[in-house]
Computed example of a mutant assay.
Amino acid sequence: MIVPGYGRKLDLKEWSPVVEALLDGRHFVLTTHENSDGDGLGSEVALALVLRQFGRTVSIVNPTEVPPNYSFLKKAGGIVLFNGRDEDAIQELSLSDVLVVLDANLAERIGSLRPHVQFAKELGGMKIVCIDHHLDPEDFADIMVCEQYASSTGELVYDLILALEAKTGRKLVTPEVAEALYTAIMTDTGSFRFPKTTPYVYRIAGDLVDKGADPSLIYDRIYNSLTPQALKLLGAALSAITIYDDGMIASLFISQEMMKTTGSKLFDTDLIVTYLLSVPSVRISVLMVEMMDGRVKASFRSRGNIYVNHLARNYGGGGHMNAAGCLLQFSAEKARKVIPEDVRAFLNAHLSE
């Protein structure tokens, strides 16, 4: 794998099929994965704003609600929540000639939208485009650009917009587009501190700031907007963390009862996973959150060259080398017993290599 450096050049040939599909299409639906984050949301909002500059009809339809700290993106992009029965969203899918899936390279990651996407494709020949940067992509799209070297999907969408500018001769990065892309890249690089934050990423960030993104404001909106409910959950969760195996593994289970008591919601757990890896000795952490339907969402984090996406893949999930997740198809009681032991076995296997 070649990681782009400071002087990386735009690969117009790679982006040509995507550019052609976007310029030929007239009615678009954009979406991202369940439990959306800054990268998925920022990428789809940026692309929507660009496509609307070409007079295209664009709808953003997501399988789960937008977390409150990203409400500024929801306002900018007009994001609609699909609850599985939304007739307007189903109609948008049936009318669209291009669906763009951003920040998800597995079809199941779009959740409740998946069967309706399949039906719309069979009914009207809708073209599916996928843009992503995670490991182990699934071949479900007509056109896929999945580059694992990229820091974020936002980095790839930035390149796509440059390719569109080269093709059309238009300047497309407005202040609103810059804000959405900066959000995508900043959040998925951990505020520019993760390993894939190459010199090229800093160049992109500088360009986006030059074109209207406000780094201080964006950071404040995302990371300094905790609700009282989220703070209560954080307090309860920190006292329940378990650290074992000589401090190398940290785990935490958040029950529905804990969330009801604190009045918190699923997206309030996103901040908590970062605390699990804050102890220097911890090599792998797992956060398990009980869902309303009884299933469990598991989020894995790791240090160094420990590929926790392989661990998540055992349960139908995926993600990055050091950050991955899955939705467990069994009870919370079983998850609390099985997952910590699986994490232990996985780490021991890694240490014995």
Rank of each mutant, 00 (worst) to 15 (best):
A184Y: 06
T227C: 01
M321A: 14
Q256M: 11
C326I: 06
Y6V: 07
M1Y: 11
S43V: 02
C130Y: 01
P137R: 08
G124V: 01
D24Y: 06
G325H: 03
R26P: 00
L95T: 12
V66I: 15
S281M: 08
L106A: 15
M144T: 13
R193K: 15
G169S: 04
F82V: 07
Q118E: 15
N322L: 06
R203H: 11
P17Q: 01
D214G: 01
E122L: 12
L10Y: 00
V66L: 09
S59F: 13
V173L: 09
D11W: 00
G169D: 01
L311W: 04
L12E: 13
A178K: 01
N35T: 14
S43E: 07
G124W: 00
G190Q: 07
H310D: 13
R170E: 13
I222H: 08
D39P: 06
G317Y: 05
F300G: 05
D24L: 11
Y200L: 06
K74V: 07
P67M: 07
G7S: 12
I60G: 06
E14S: 12
V173S: 00
E290K: 09
D342P: 00
F253M: 11
K232R: 15
A150E: 07
S36A: 15
S278F: 04
S302W: 07
H134T: 04
A298N: 07
P63G: 09
S278C: 09
A213R: 02
S239F: 11
I185N: 04
A205W: 02
N62G: 08
V157Q: 05
L47A: 03
M186R: 09
A89Y: 00
L123Y: 09
G77L: 03
L10N: 02
F54V: 00
T242Q: 15
G77K: 05
F28S: 01
R313I: 02
I306V: 14
G169R: 03
V45S: 05
Y223M: 07
M259T: 02
Y307E: 14
L287S: 03
F54N: 03
T183N: 06
G206P: 03
L22M: 10
L276E: 03
I128E: 05
I131P: 10
T153G: 10
A48D: 09
G206A: 14
N224K: 14
P195R: 10
K13G: 09
V61E: 06
A48W: 03
P199A: 02
M126R: 12
I339D: 01
G318N: 09
S94R: 15
K74P: 00
K74S: 15
I161P: 06
I243H: 10
R283M: 15
F194P: 02
V45M: 05
D220K: 15
A104N: 10
A250W: 05
E34C: 13
H134C: 05
F192P: 07
L30M: 10
R203W: 05
